[in-house]
C-alpha cells in the first residue's frame, strides 16, 4: 500500500478516512447532545455526507464508479428524506408548538 501511494504523490487515502471519521463523529455527537430536532436532523445529514465523501474517495482511489453512483443515490434518498422529515417536523411543531425531542415522548403511546 505504501509503495502504490508513493507513485502518486497525492493526498493519502488515510487522510480521507480520518477526516470522514471525524466528520461522522461530530455528527454523532450532535445527535446525542442536542435536543433540537432540527439540529439533530442536520447532524444526520452530516453523517450521511461524511459517508458520501468516503465512498467517493474509495471510488476514486480504486477507479470503481460504483461508489460514486452510490453517492448519487444516497443524495436522492437524502433529498427525499429531508422533504418528508421537515414536513413531519412542521406537523409536529404545529401540534405541540415545540421540536424539542425531550418533550416529544408521545411516541411511547
Amino acid at each position: 500500500m505504501e509503495t502504490t501511494m508513493s507513485q502518486f504523490q497525492t493526498v493519502p487515502l488515510q487522510y480521507y478516512i480520518i477526516f470522514c471519521s471525524a466528520l461522522f463523529s461530530i455528527g454523532v455527537v450532535g445527535v446525542l447532545s442536542k435536543r433540537n430536532a432540527l439540529v439533530i436532523f442536520m447532524s444526520v445529514e452530516l453523517m450521511l455526507n461524511s459517508a458520501n465523501l468516503l465512498l467517493t474517495a474509495f471510488s476514486a482511489y480504486r477507479n470503481d464508479p460504483a461508489g460514486q453512483i452510490f453517492v448519487f443515490f444516497i443524495m436522492v434518498v437524502a433529498a427525499a428524506e429531508v422533504a418528508i422529515g421537515l414536513g413531519l417536523l412542521v406537523v409536529v411543531f404545529r401540534s405541540t408548538k415545540t421540536i424539542d425531542i425531550q418533550v416529544l415522548n408521545k411516541l411511547k403511546w
Partner: peptide
C-alpha cells in the same frame, strides 16, 4: 456522555477502517 461516545466512535472508526487493506489502483 455524547462527547465520550463521539470520541470513542471516532477512534473505533479509524481503527476498523484502517484494518481494511484498501488497494489503491489509481490516482484520484
Amino acid at each position: 456522555i455524547a462527547g465520550i461516545a463521539g470520541g470513542l466512535l471516532f477512534l473505533l472508526l479509524i481503527g476498523s477502517l484502517k484494518s481494511f487493506d484498501v488497494a489503491v489502483v489509481s490516482n484520484p
